[in-house]
Amino acid sequence: MLQRHCLNQKELARRWGISHRTLERWRYNGQGPAFLKLGGRVLYRLADIEAFEQSQLQRALKISEAVARVGHTPRRLTADPARDTGHGATHQRTARLC
């Protein structure tokens, strides 16, 4: 059986449940996994896909470890009661993240 070592952008988009346009934007902005461009065809090697997935996992783990070191959980976005002037719907509430 022939083993596939590469995915095209639509296959990778399907794997991750994202739009293939997102992958195009990532390539344009220099983000996302490494890719090959052969002629007009874009391919992603499985090894590069898995390395990118692992790097994203590691980033998430590092963030949660840093939060644990600080000793608190981040607050949710909430309306700032100090800014609420009681003018009802005409006043635009602002949100803050602590």
Rank of each mutant, 00 (worst) to 15 (best):
L2I: 10
Q3I: 06
Q3C: 07
R4A: 10
C6S: 04
L7G: 01
Q9Y: 03
K10C: 04
K10M: 09
L12K: 01
R14E: 15
R15N: 09
W16T: 11
W16F: 10
G17S: 08
S19P: 01
S19K: 13
R21I: 15
R21P: 00
L23H: 03
L23D: 01
L23K: 07
E24A: 15
E24W: 00
R25N: 10
W26K: 02
R27G: 11
N29Y: 09
N29G: 05
G32M: 06
A34C: 05
L36S: 05
L36M: 07
K37G: 09
K37F: 02
K37M: 09
L38N: 10
G40P: 01
R41V: 14
R41H: 15
V42R: 01
V42C: 07
Y44A: 01
Y44G: 03
Y44P: 10
R45P: 01
L46K: 04
D48H: 03
D48R: 08
I49A: 01
E50K: 05
E50Q: 06
E50N: 00
F52P: 00
Q54C: 05
Q56E: 15
L57F: 10
L57E: 02
Q58I: 04
A60P: 00
A60C: 12
S64Y: 07
E65V: 07
E65I: 08
A66L: 13
A66P: 02
V67G: 01
V67I: 08
A68T: 07
A68Y: 10
R69S: 10
G71T: 03
H72A: 15
H72K: 05
T73A: 12
P74S: 09
P74W: 00
P74Y: 00
P74R: 04
P74M: 08
R75Y: 14
R76E: 10
T78D: 09
D80H: 08
D80Q: 12
D80A: 12
P81Y: 07
A82P: 00
A82N: 14
R83I: 00
D84E: 09
G86E: 15
G88H: 11
A89P: 08
A89Y: 05
A89G: 01
T90M: 03
H91S: 06
H91L: 08
Q92N: 03
R93Y: 06
T94G: 12
T94K: 12
A95G: 07
R96S: 11
L97I: 15
L97Y: 11
